[in-house]
């Protein structure tokens, strides 16, 4: 009756076996996770009194506490700026090593990428906890932490930009006998400078966010006061610390967004 035959589907396709299996696995994982994490919404009810105190005090911030945290707040921002800058200085050569489109062997960019990947697996707070054990308590450790963290993040962002560089102008200059320094300065940097600055600012935003909590493990900045006020159950002071964190992050975000838009 039909001019061509009706196609057939395999059993697996007809009954969407693959999709069913994926959904079944997800449900099993979900239930198993619920069990091992001890998720129990009734805990909300049994702890409601304490949580009520927390919320109650937090909605009454003790503004006088603000004068105590001004210095660590400034320190937090300084840590972030210095950490990001140091990280960036080290990240630039690393990015050149890891970029695939520049002349060097597969071994070089393969190894450098793997090392950079390892750097990026560690969250900054974990890094800070380890570095505090090494370097001791204080903002120096925080700065080093953020430097290492920025190094991992920026080098990846940078080598991805480098890989999108149009090598045409560079090759034209090479053919006309320019030195490698001249090529980088005149053919490569103009293409990438804007994006590099934009990524630097973006990393700075991320670092300001994380620097506000680093003090929790002793790496300097505002986080120390977060821990102290909570341990002393002074939630009205905690609220001030959180609001200050929030305001700082917001201000840096707005500034950085403004600058990034100007760069484009």
């Amino acid at each position: 009756m039909h001019t061509s035959e009706v196609p057939r589907r395999s059993f697996v396709k007809k009954y969407h076996i693959k999709g069913m299996i994926v959904i079944a696995i997800l449900i099993v994982l979900f239930l198993y996770s619920l069990k091992i994490c001890g998720v129990d919404p009734s805990l909300f009810v049994s702890n409601i009194a304490q949580f009520g105190v927390l919320i109650g005090q937090m909605s009454n911030p003790d503004w006088s506490y603000f004068s105590f945290i001004w210095d660590p707040l400034v320190q937090t921002v300084q840590m972030a700026i210095l950490g990001t800058t140091i990280g960036t200085i080290f990240a630039i050569p690393a990015a050149f090593l890891a970029a695939r489109n520049l002349d060097h062997s597969k071994v070089v960019h393969g190894t450098s990428r793997f090392v950079l990947d390892i750097f990026r697996t560690l969250p900054s707070l974990l890094l800070a906890a380890i570095l505090v054990a090494i370097f001791g308590i204080g903002p120096t450790t925080g700065t080093i932490t953020l430097a290492i963290f920025s190094f991992g993040m920026i080098s990846k962002l940078f080598y991805e930009v480098l890989e999108t560089v149009d090598m045409g102008p560079a090759e034209a200059m090479k053919a006309s006998g320019a030195s490698i320094i001249q090529i980088i300065r005149l053919a490569i940097i103009p293409q990438i400078a804007g994006q590099f600055c934009s990524f630097f600012l973006y990393t700075l935003e991320v670092n300001v966010r994380s620097s506000t909590v680093l003090g929790y493990v002793g790496a300097g900045g505002l986080g120390l006061y977060l821990q102290q006020t909570i341990d002393e159950f002074n939630y009205s002071e905690t609220a001030v610390v959180i609001l200050a964190t929030f305001a700082t992050v917001l201000v840096i975000d707005i500034l950085s967004n403004y600058l990034r838009r100007k760069l484009q």
Binding site: H2, T3, S4, E5, V6, R9
Partner: peptide, 15 residues
Amino acid sequence: AVRSLDHVNMLKKLY
């Protein structure tokens, strides 16, 4: 649906 697709010569692409 099979008949309509057959009309426009697209039955082989049904799935």
